[in-house]
C-alpha cells in the first residue's frame, strides 16, 4: 500500500460520519478540543508503532495482517449495522476528553490504522488522513441531514474494508 492508500485507510477508520452522528448536540468547543486530543493520541500511536511492535516481538508485516483483519471486520459491522443511538455527552469540564475524545473519536480502528501506517514508514500520510477526518467532524457537526451522514458512514466503512484487505495482502506478501 502506498501513502495515499494508508491516508485513506486512516481517514476511513476515523469514521468521521459516525462521529458527527454520535456527537450531535455536543458543544462545539468540546468537539474541537476532543478532536485535538484524539489527534495527539493518534500521532503518538503512529510514531511509537515500530518501537511498540518491536518491544512486543511483533513483526510489522504480521501486524498489518492482524490489523487488516480487525479493520475489515469493524468495517463490515459498520456497513451492516446502522449507527447506534446518540452518544450521551457528558457534562462537566472534562467532557471534551470523555466521551468526546474517548471513546467517540479515538476508535480502535483509527489506532490500528495509524499504527499500521507508522510501522509501514508512512506515518505522516496516515496522520494527515486522520487529521482531515477529524477536521470533517469539527466542521460537519450539527450540519447536514443525518441520512446523508449515515450513507457517508457506510461508504467510508466499505472503503475501510477494501483498504483493510489490501493491508492484509501487503502483510501476506511481505517477506
Amino acid at each position: 500500500m502506498n501513502g495515499w492508500a494508508l491516508a485513506l485507510l486512516a481517514a476511513a477508520a476515523t469514521a468521521p460520519a459516525v462521529a458527527v452522528l454520535r456527537l450531535a448536540g455536543a458543544p462545539a468547543r468540546d468537539v474541537r478540543r476532543g478532536a485535538v486530543a484524539a489527534a495527539v493520541l493518534g500521532v503518538v500511536a503512529a510514531l511509537v508503532a515500530t518501537t511498540l511492535l518491536d518491544a512486543l516481538s511483533i513483526e510489522p508485516e504480521s501486524f498489518w495482517i492482524g490489523a487488516g483483519i480487525v479493520l475489515a471486520g469493524i468495517g463490515l459491522v459498520r456497513i451492516v449495522l446502522p449507527v447506534g443511538g446518540w452518544e450521551p455527552v457528558a457534562e462537566g469540564p472534562w467532557s471534551w476528553l470523555v466521551p468526546v475524545a474517548y471513546p467517540v473519536l479515538l476508535r480502535p480502528d483509527m489506532v490500528l490504522a495509524l499504527m499500521a501506517a507508522g510501522s509501514h514508514d508512512d506515518a505522516l500520510w496516515a496522520i494527515a488522513g486522520a487529521a482531515v477526518a477529524l477536521g470533517v467532524v469539527v466542521a460537519g457537526l450539527d450540519r447536514g441531514r443525518p441520512s446523508v451522514w449515515r450513507a457517508t458512514a457506510r461508504l467510508t466503512a466499505a472503503l475501510q474494508v477494501v483498504l483493510a484487505v489490501a493491508l492484509v495482502i501487503d502483510g501476506v506478501r511481505a517477506v
Binding site: 512486543l56 511483533i58 504480521s62 501486524f63 495482517i65 492482524g66 483483519i69 480487525v70 450521551p88 455527552v89 457528558a90 457534562e91 462537566g92 467532557s95 470523555v98 466521551p99 474517548y102 471513546p103 480502535p108
Partner: peptide, 27 residues
C-alpha cells in the same frame, strides 16, 4: 446528559478485552 460510570467502564473493558484478544489471536 451524563455519562454513567458503568458505561465508561464498559468502554474501557471492551478496549482491554479487544487488545488482549488481538494479542493472543492475531499478533
Amino acid at each position: 446528559m451524563r455519562v454513567t460510570r458503568g458505561r465508561w467502564t464498559l468502554h474501557a473493558a471492551a478496549w482491554i478485552a479487544g487488545i488482549a484478544a488481538f494479542r493472543i489471536v492475531l499478533t
